[in-house]
Design a binder for these strands. Sequence first.
DNA 1: AGCGGTCAAGTTGAT
DNA 2: ATCAACTTGACCGCT
Length: 306
Amino acid sequence: MKKNPARVASIRLGLCCSFSEHPIKFRNTTVKANSNMERKAALAKLAKLCAENAEALQAALQFCLDNRIGCFRINSQILPLKTHVDCGYTMADLPEGDEIVQRFRACGDFAKKHHIRMSFHPDQFVVLNSPREEVVDRSVAELEYQAEVAEWVGADVVNIHGGGAYGDKEGALEAFAKNLSRLSDRARSRLTLENDDTTYAPSDLLPLCRTEGIPLVYDVHHHRCKTDELSVEKATQEAMGTWDREPLFHISSPIEGWDGAAPKRHHDFIDIADFPDCWRDKDLTIEVEAKAKELAVLRLRKDLGG
DNA sequence: AGCGGTCAAGTTGAT
DNA sequence: ATCAACTTGACCGCT
């Protein structure tokens, strides 16, 4: 079998959202600035930002290809303010919106050709189990937006956390399961769940993942912050069992070491000692959550022997 | 043209 | 009761 050049052994490393030194930048704007403009001018500006972000994504994928990085996480503001209640828009609202979509589809073609995986990670405001209806509404809208772009570019993962506990974890997870029915197939089929560092450990999520057929994105750093009865090895095995495709996990290292003041916070680089030995011989995508971004990915690959 | 304060959204836990 | 943490750095409005 021909070996995929974007891999070291069986591990595919992933870069998250942005660059430390390499001069690729994604654009964004603010509600305040957008609200101060006439709607037409606001949409023209947003279209420009979206188009530039499509170009930046193409450049990011080229960087990944050139540097044998097998996965890229797309930031949530790739289409700035897309779901905002006042500033939001559809692609049809944007001047030359169709061409912007075509640029993203071209990114997808490139990624497919070169076997580069892509993912999304909607941020903390997406809470599918909130008792507040309007929060769930906005969360669904955000998931649908990111899933739409995911479809254009061929990304197979839109990853979120369990959400709040609200003093009743089991009830909160039931609410999560119930609200899954509000998602389109496009969003539902890409949805994954990740253990977090305060509320939901892997063992909290695994039953839901199995029942609902949601892959578990196992974050070993979060697991070390929010432990359960599972070992890293066991959690790895159980998480792998929830995937019907190549599993995707997260790695990071604590900013000042595990005995430091803030072990939850991320270091610039990955300490190879934090990389589980049991991951080394498996077919996995590992997203590298480290502040030094592409430098951290490249150093980790070197440290792994690539 | 350069500077500094500001930035959509939710929840938790530290102070 | 407030605030940092969640990728922080880019952006904008003011001078």
